[in-house]
Nucleic acid binder design. Structure first.
Length: 172
DNA sequence: CCAGACGTTGTT
DNA sequence: GTCTGG
DNA sequence: CCAGACGTTGTT
DNA sequence: GTCTGG
């Protein structure tokens, strides 16, 4: 279940069997500097797009943490990224996007005493597209073996990762 | 999400 | 086609 | 009562 | 933990 519950629909949290209790009691922040979606306008060529904040700052997804007993009685710790409808920037690429929280809302989101669904639900909305950037990235992102600094992948034209020239370029 | 493996026979 | 691993 | 499911994304 | 189906 943990592997399949990597995302949680924000709209349904209050009633969802799996996520209702974590929503009330164990909300978390998941730190990121970007996320990826694949443009499938041309079904023969999936184009990876990186989404990030315009000012390149780190940000936080709204997340849920959980701890439960697995099939063999082992304790499993897992977390899920909450999703919402896409903003105008993401919409052409994908029908969902992760919830990005504003720093001013971190405390309210993390406060375990705050169990008011009515106060939390309004935070689970699309981030302002004006504060975000979308850019095509190299197909290198498609292979999980390329687990490298994302700056080596951003803005590189496919099909090959030109790592050497990037390392030598102070502008990157 | 994508990439890669998946199977048996028979042994180039 | 479908499942697993990353 | 117990057993089994519980989810999201995308459908290449 | 909790809901559904049998």
């Amino acid at each position: 279940m943990a592997a399949k519950c990597i995302n949680a629909r924000g709209e349904e949290l209050a009633n969802n069997r799996v996520f209702r209790t974590p929503f009330r009691r164990s909300r978390c922040l998941i730190v990121a500097d970007g996320f990826y979606e694949w443009d499938k306008t041309n079904p023969k060529k999936k184009v990876p797009i990186r989404f990030s904040l315009s000012d390149d700052s780190l940000f936080a997804f709204a997340g849920l943490a959980d701890r439960w007993s697995g099939p063999a009685g082992e304790v499993v710790e897992s977390c899920s990224v909450i999703t919402t409808e896409p903003n105008a920037l993401v919409q052409p690429t994908h029908n969902r996007m992760p919830v990005i929280l504003h720093p001013a809302d971190y405390d309210r989101w993390l406060d375990p005493q705050n169990q008011e669904v009515a106060a939390l639900q309004p935070l689970l909305v699309p981030f302002p597209p004006e504060a975000m950037r979308a850019e095509r990235v190299s197909d290198a992102i498609n292979n999980a073996k390329n687990d490298v600094d994302p700056r080596l992948i951003v803005a590189v034209e496919p099909p090959r990762l030109r790592a050497r020239s990037l390392f030598d370029d102070d502008d990157i």
